[in-house]
Amino acid sequence: MTKKKILIIDDEKEMAQVETMRLEAYGYEVLVAYDGQTGLDRVRAEKPDLIILDIMLPTIDGYELCRMLKQDPECRRIPIILVSAVDQKFDTDLGKKVGADDFFTKPFEPDVLLAKIKELTKKR
């Protein structure tokens, strides 16, 4: 069985790195992008099985990127978990409107995140 591919889009580089180590240990292939535009390019090129998308990003913010991907016939089926820092105001209404599949607050509870990833990647 090929490994499922997860794309993390987060400008907090070192956080993305430690998250990558954990997800790799769980058996996923992990790709990383540090800004919205690069993230968009990587989604189109790599077609990951799931995207973990930070809301606050340079070039294209998370909500807008989510909206763009969910309107793209090539990418709309890829599940997106929108992520915010614990003290950020999370606009879940906007998140739902742009088509996010779920919402998480950082730092992640590893077990909860893993269960959600499994659930969302199974649906496809």
């Binding site: 956080m15 430690v18 180590m21």
Partner: peptide, 27 residues
């Protein structure tokens, strides 16, 4: 205050996850 808190919590989150990677025996 919110800005300072945010700037402190972001690296703190990285410290916590780094420790957790070792505690959870992933490394």
């Amino acid at each position: 205050m919110l800005l300072i808190a945010h700037e402190i919590r972001a690296p703190l989150g990285i410290v916590k996850e780094s420790i957790s990677l070792v505690v959870d025996k992933i490394l």
